[in-house]
């Protein structure tokens, strides 16, 4: 048991967390004549370590995940979901949301495709909530930064919000508030082409390159902001605004995060340094969930396909869910890290 534990911690800290890299970069920074614990040396160290770590993990992850995802194109997901009813359909939608490939600009065609095929609105929303918030990549990256327990609990709660949110929207009778042109659209059954193993590997490689190109600016920005928070912003500021002394910290973090648009990979370094500076764990996770799940560009697109009532309900359900998770995590923080 002890050996197993030690093995896991080695995997978490050295393989996923790449602590050896941090030490190596620390030495390199010192060789340049900068103090790795000082202001500029610290910023440089954080920046180099986090960018290299995130890009390496990201490359391996996206490739593996895209390979798995090539088995679940949206057409197939829609077909699978069509066979289930009630809560099971919501749970399955949330789970499939974690493996179906999908970028924010596809969310609307996907929403319309699901709805016009007769899937209940609640099921589609379970999918739409879980897809950006929880994916396999974020699970591994969270493990690297916050440790295994936090990562697993984050994913579980993400799925709970997705299932509960979708079910609630359904119970509120939101079906009515989908724009008419979608409901009246013809139901189409499209087949996706059969892929060989080579096709999948090629697809995975393309996804890897496209994703890296797309998220790189967010990662540099995220790590840059993270490095500044990590080394410049005084701990007492963060503690006062986002620590446990401020009962509204979670609400504040969520409100700031909702209109922002960033990839989860760019958000994690910011979250990491805020946590290091004494922000509550739940506060930080709320911020991450809010940034990834709700953003102005995706809401503007969604507005074209649903009426204001449903849009409002969607925003409200997500926001409340994220805030609740934040308080819950803050209460549990002592047991998780």
């Amino acid at each position: 048991m002890e050996a197993l534990r030690a093995g896991w911690f080695f995997f978490q800290d050295q393989v996923l967390g790449m602590q050896w890299l941090n030490r190596l970069i620390g030495r390199g920074v010192a060789a340049l004549g900068l103090d790795p614990e000082g202001l500029w040396g610290g910023i440089l160290r954080f920046f180099l370590y986090d960018t290299v770590k995130i890009f390496v993990l990201l490359s391996v992850l996206i490739f593996v995940i895209s390979y798995i995802q090539s088995y679940f194109p949206p057409e197939r997901t829609r077909k699978i979901l069509g066979r289930f009813r009630g809560l099971w359909a919501n749970i399955l939608a949330a789970l499939l949301g974690t493996v179906t490939p999908f970028c924010s600009c596809s969310s609307i065609p996907l929403f319309m495709g699901f709805t016009s095929a007769g899937l209940p609105v609640g099921v589609t929303f379970s999918f739409l909530i879980s897809s950006p918030m929880v994916d396999l990549g974020s699970l591994v990256l969270l493990m690297s930064v916050f440790g295994g327990r936090v990562a697993v609990v984050y994913v579980l709660f993400g799925l709970v919000i997705a299932v509960a949110g979708g079910t609630l929207l359904d119970k509120l009778g939101m079906e009515r508030y989908v724009e008419d042109f979608i409901r009246s659209a013809p139901r189409l059954e499209t087949e996706s082409a059969a892929l060989t193993r080579q096709d999948r590997a090629l697809y995975a490689r393309d996804q890897l390159l496209a994703t890296i190109r797309k998220v790189a600016p967010y990662i540099f920005l995220g790590v840059g902001v993270g490095a500044v928070i990590h080394n410049v912003i005084p701990q007492t500021w963060v503690e006062t605004v986002l620590g446990d002394r401020n009962p509204l910290a979670v609400v504040l973090a969520t409100a700031v995060g909702v209109p922002m648009y960033a990839d989860i990979f760019g958000t994690i370094p910011v979250a990491e340094s805020l946590l290091f500076k004494g922000a509550g764990l739940g506060t930080v996770l709320s911020f991450m969930m809010a940034v990834t799940t709700l953003s102005l560009p995706s809401l503007i697109m969604l507005k074209k396909t649903v009426k204001p009532r449903l849009l409002g309900a969607f925003i409200a359900v997500c926001t409340v869910g994220i805030i609740l998770v934040g308080y819950f995590f803050n209460a549990l923080q002592a047991f998780l890290i």
Binding site: P73, P74, E75, R78, P101, F102, C105, S106, P109, L110, M112, G113, F114, S116, F181, I182, A185, P186, L188, E189, T190, S192, Y203, D206, Q207, A210
Partner: peptide
């Protein structure tokens, strides 16, 4: 888009046949 049954973009459709979607 809904009529064409396209769910992931960008998609390429040649003579009514979807040859690529979501790539």
């Amino acid at each position: 888009m809904v009529r064409m049954g396209i769910m992931s973009v960008p998609a390429l459709v040649v003579d009514g046949r979807t040859v690529s979607a979501g790539r």
